[in-house]
């Protein structure tokens, strides 16, 4: 294959593949920025995927389906928020339990929807005018889903909100130093609740993309580990929304290249490519930036209890 065809196709496919990762990772960034780690992404995506499919199938409208998907993810995250924030139980166990619960529940609900094609799935679009551009047209503006562009937009919005609004400052402060926020007369828990729920909403949308657009059908195990990858990407992006785009695209490019380069490299080794590459990219970043590279929110994973430090 010509190298320019390869590059164009790889980037175009990286975008399509990475879209659910972008949504879910973005959600996790927001939740973790407020100090609440949520390992339930895989479960929330599965809930979103099955609910979105069921609703889209019943109503015949993918957009209702998508809304339902986001809501389902949000409901899942509400459970996590209650256990980890209100009850102050261990956020890691709570998230893992949510993943188990979400995968089981989605499979259980989904029994009725297996093997049914979605009559009217989400359509791909060509962006008018921009699609005509040489190279960039086929690379970015042909045959993608609206949700892909929406994910990119969401990343920019999240960045602006987190880093350039007072609300964003409060959210980040809650994740860095909840005691200080509390002392300043602001509630910690509502902020954390909001962040976790937004995280669930975005993860649910990511799941909805899978069952409404990427592969319009439902099957048990259809999320297939993407939630875990999204978790890793959130950290890989150092909890920064714009870097999530870069991280997601890199991972997506590796994933699709694993099939495109099979004629050149042994395929069984290529399947490891996205994972090996992620580790190498992290090492490289760390090496370039020195030891202070990773800005985890200081209070990440710790329940907040007033009067306790």
């Amino acid at each position: 294959m010509d190298i320019d065809v390869l590059v164009v196709a790889t980037i175009a496919r990286a975008l399509a593949f990475a879209t659910p990762l972008l949504w879910a990772a973005l959600g996790e960034v927001i939740a973790e920025r407020s100090g609440v780690v949520n390992l339930g992404v895989e479960g929330m995506m599965a809930l979103g995927a099955v609910t979105g499919f069921a609703v889209a199938f019943t109503t015949g409208d993918v957009w209702w389906g998508l809304a339902a998907a986001g809501l389902a993810g949000m409901l899942g995250s509400l459970l996590h928020a209650f256990v980890a924030i209100t009850l102050r139980a261990d956020a890691y166990v709570s998230g893992l339990s949510l993943t188990m619960l979400g995968l089981g529940l989605s499979a259980l609900i989904g029994r009725a929807w297996v093997g049914r094609p979605l009559p009217d799935p989400m359509r791909t679009i060509d962006v008018p005018w921009l699609r005509e551009l040489p190279l960039l047209g086929p690379m970015l503006f042909q045959g993608q889903y609206v949700l892909t562009y929406a994910a990119l937009l969401a990343a920019v919005v999240a960045w602006a909100m987190l880093f350039h609004t007072r609300g964003g400052l409060v959210l980040r402060s809650v994740g860095e130093n909840p005691t200080a926020v509390d002392a300043a007369g602001l509630h910690v828990r509502p902020v954390r609740y909001a962040a976790v729920l937004i995280g669930g909403l975005l993860a649910g949308i990511g799941g909805g993309y899978l069952s409404l657009a990427y592969r319009p059908s439902w099957g048990e195990g259809m999320v297939n580990g993407l939630g875990w990858i999204a978790l890793a990407l959130a950290i890989f992006a150092m909890w920064h929304p714009l870097r999530v785009i870069v991280a997601g695209l890199l991972f997506g490019a590796c994933f699709t290249l694993a099939f495109r380069l099979q004629t050149v490299f042994p395929p069984e080794l290529l399947t490891m490519l996205p994972y090996v590459f992620t580790v190498l990219a992290l090492v490289f970043t760390a090496w370039r930036r020195g030891r202070l590279a990773f800005g985890a929110p200081e209070a990440l994973g710790r329940a907040y209890l007033r009067g306790e430090r």
Binding site: G221, F255, T256, F259, E268
Partner: peptide, 18 residues
């Protein structure tokens, strides 16, 4: 193109695209 899995919808998607 090989998936190295019996069940891998995302892999099947990208392999078909490739």
């Amino acid at each position: 193109r090989w998936l190295y899995a019996w069940f891998d919808p995302a892999g099947a998607q990208e392999a078909t695209q490739a």
